[in-house]
Design a binder for these strands. Sequence first.
DNA 1: CATGAATGAGGCTTCATTCAT
DNA 2: AATGAATGAAGCCTCATTCAT
Lengths: 211, 211, 211, 211
Amino acid sequence: MGIQERKEREKERRRQQIMVAAKRVFSDKGFNKATMEDIAQDAELSPGTLYLYFKNKEELYASLSLRILQYLLIRVEHVLEETDSGPEEKLNSLVEAMYDVYEFDPLIIINMFHLQSSETLKNLSPQLMSEIKDLSRKSLGSIAKIFKAGVDDGLFIDRHPTALADTFWALFSGVVLWLTSKKIINEGKDYLKETLELAFDIFRRGISSPP
Amino acid sequence: MGIQERKEREKERRRQQIMVAAKRVFSDKGFNKATMEDIAQDAELSPGTLYLYFKNKEELYASLSLRILQYLLIRVEHVLEETDSGPEEKLNSLVEAMYDVYEFDPLIIINMFHLQSSETLKNLSPQLMSEIKDLSRKSLGSIAKIFKAGVDDGLFIDRHPTALADTFWALFSGVVLWLTSKKIINEGKDYLKETLELAFDIFRRGISSPP
Amino acid sequence: MGIQERKEREKERRRQQIMVAAKRVFSDKGFNKATMEDIAQDAELSPGTLYLYFKNKEELYASLSLRILQYLLIRVEHVLEETDSGPEEKLNSLVEAMYDVYEFDPLIIINMFHLQSSETLKNLSPQLMSEIKDLSRKSLGSIAKIFKAGVDDGLFIDRHPTALADTFWALFSGVVLWLTSKKIINEGKDYLKETLELAFDIFRRGISSPP
Amino acid sequence: MGIQERKEREKERRRQQIMVAAKRVFSDKGFNKATMEDIAQDAELSPGTLYLYFKNKEELYASLSLRILQYLLIRVEHVLEETDSGPEEKLNSLVEAMYDVYEFDPLIIINMFHLQSSETLKNLSPQLMSEIKDLSRKSLGSIAKIFKAGVDDGLFIDRHPTALADTFWALFSGVVLWLTSKKIINEGKDYLKETLELAFDIFRRGISSPP
DNA sequence: CATGAATGAGGCTTCATTCAT
DNA sequence: AATGAATGAAGCCTCATTCAT
């Protein structure tokens, strides 16, 4: 059984090793320009080996999203569970969590938007697909709960919490995408951090209930 | 001379015909899964013909973005030139313009984010590339001017107008992307319009200067 | 009838115009990299027009060879007909003729060696093909006659005149090809003229009968 | 280690297998008409496999030339090193070497003339390109040395050894090309061997210093 | 006659995936 | 379990040739 366990752990470690490599390569080149060969080389494995751990390229890709979503969910639920802080403090914590999620893997947003191409998802196993949907739903749900508390307390404007959560998430991902894009096109300085701060600042002011 | 002109018009019509087909196919399948063959078939032309009007697949793709950006610029500049309305009214007009831009071609945002992959743009002619950059810069610039007026009048919070413009644009594109994505994943109802309204509402409240 | 004639002449002039363009383009890019579009542009005509004068690309190409071969034959026969000069003087005249032929169109040799690819000749009309063969045979035949006279007079070594003609022709074409090749590879100075002189010098000495 | 070695040898054998097929197909159809598909089929491999061993079509093609040039250099240097023979004997050995080179691969000359089209070489890796240049230069250099010895000994006419070497090489390649061409056009008997003999005979007589 | 837009076959090349070792 | 050579299906693009005007 010890052996069994060690095997399990080794297998998991190998999976991680591949995912680390995949993240690097996908970040560098994007999903389509990245080749399995690239990833294998970065992971110091052979292409064939990748298929022992992931059904295909898309599944490997989706696994990365999954990991991010897992991290996102953990952070969001952690915020939700802060017992000694009100909705406004929780919103602040949420913003902080988003920063961390972004830094955990800047690829996240881009990943998640590739998911929108239904064509891209055709080869995903139903199981993985439903895990992704599930995580995504849960995270948004938790965020919505935070907003609901604020609305119920009369601190936030009286709008549907899910819509608020969507807007919050859209704002975050929109800023990340746009500023990344802008940086590349203009080869200019990176104002991501400042703009995110401004964006959340506006958002906070925008949803706070008038006195 | 009449002949000359008619030929010109026919040529332009053919270009449009191709772009319409390309838009459909790219929207359906995304840039990478869409094949030139697909587009040719949709346009009821032969693959070779596409290359008489567009240098390559990427240039065809970029041309779509260009058209949208042109429309965006026109609308934004129109808002800027409204002489008999203050910054707040202009912001409202701007929001309306964004709706229209989105409806003019929902593909716009997705297009613009593919542009961020510098790898994708390698085959673009420098001319087309600079046109895109130029339009993009001009539109954002005009939006920024609107915010500047509001800031100068003390109506909007005192933040850098460019940053406000970026945030505005990011919010818009983020909502469009996220809700589109959500719709596909959840195969659910389309809340885009409502969410956009909410988002802009929050934004307006968020940037309005406190009394 | 005058009209008829003028039409004929105009047609011939157009043919020439195309051939001039073709020569330029084929020389620049080689047979395969040259496109009919290239040639049409150089001739300031439309691609379709080329096909009114030449059955296809290969036939156009072959026509160039034909013209050179015609010029070659004229020059060689002219030498043959010099009544007041012996075989040695004729050989000198022949060498001079080869210079002229080369200068008339440096492309000639390369043209003629493309002809060796039987695959290339598949699309030639039998008529054109036989014209080429005929001219080629006649020229070599005339050259051979010159050598025969020298052999008969005991001035040249006693070898089969056709073989001598082949060698002479091979030497000429070999030098042209090799030095052209060398110039490109080494991007160096062009020693073609000097080498041709040396080559013919050696040839003359090599075939002159020992006293 | 044995395994390592065997793999190496298998890989080399596969390379050879491809080159043999390529030689056959290129000889049959010429560079342009030969397709990678053709070669793959001849080698009983899939098209993709060719690219595991050669970067592209041109590189595969150039590799064939390289092999011949290597053989040429070996043979020429071997002649140069004959210690117990004078320049005249060495010239004879050289002629013999040329025969052998030709028989080793009749394709050689045609290959080398395709190399002259600089356009054709655009896709060659610089390394391969420089190897070709190098071998070509070395071979000619060695041939020139042989002639230099003869000139210095007063056995050959006093001309620049490099020019003599160029002429020698041009004569050889010219005869091969022309007689091959002639054979195809006339579908006649193959006089290559006899003509080469005559050509070298004339050359020998032509460069031998007068008493 | 001339045009030039349109065709469409076909080439080169890439790369996700498989499978014998 | 790991390898990595081999596969072969596509994809993009070119260009000789045709044909309606």
